[in-house]
């Protein structure tokens, strides 16, 4: 298993790791059975992601993709965060081994799950905005 230097950097020194007691959007994806769980905390103000934190149980790629996803959405508008794709995460990490692509899918979904929670808390149906979150295909 060969990871890029960027992946190793984000694994060794993950950005934005931790919890956020005053988050107004929290999402968790994955399951312990398949070995990866990501929880993403967002603090959204005026339509912008003011702060983001994550906690991840998983392999090196799971930790690195979580870290990179938080970096890519921090300070961005909700609209921009919704456009985050797993391939953008992979690209920013300078590639991932093929068996680890599913970790980048989880990272994208963790962001979307947190945004869904944000809208749900506001009493707004998240589905028309965020879309339906599908489970990671490989977990089934």
């Amino acid at each position: 298993m060969l990871y890029s230097e960027k992946v190793m950097d984000h694994f060794t020194n993950p950005r934005n790791v931790g919890e956020m007691p005053d988050a107004n959007g929290v999402g968790e994806v994955g399951n312990a059975k398949c070995g990866d769980i990501m929880r993403m905390y967002l603090k959204i103000e005026d339509g912008f992601i003011k702060d983001v934190k994550f906690k991840t149980f998983g392999c090196g790629a799971a930790i690195a993709t979580s870290s990179m996803a938080t970096e890519l959405i921090k300070g961005k508008s909700i609209e921009e965060a919704l456009k985050l794709t797993n391939s953008a995460v992979v690209e920013a990490l300078e590639g991932l081994p093929p068996v680890k692509i599913h970790c980048s899918v989880l990272a994208e979904q963790a962001v979307k799950a947190a945004l869904s929670d944000y809208y749900t808390r506001l009493g707004i149906d998240p589905v028309p905005i965020v879309g339906v979150l599908s489970d990671c295909e490989e977990c089934h």
Binding site: M1, M8, F11, T12, C34, G35, D36, F57, G58, C59, G60, A61, A62, I63, V99, K100, H102, E138, C139
Partner: peptide, 28 residues
């Protein structure tokens, strides 16, 4: 704790071990 992360961190300290984690077996 997930095994591959553990191995990578041990490796960074110069310790070689192995794990039964899915992530080190190439499957889920």
């Amino acid at each position: 704790v997930e095994g591959e992360s553990l191995l990578l961190m041990l490796d960074s300290k110069g310790i070689c071990g192995s794990s039964g984690s899915a992530c080190t077996s190439g499957s889920l």
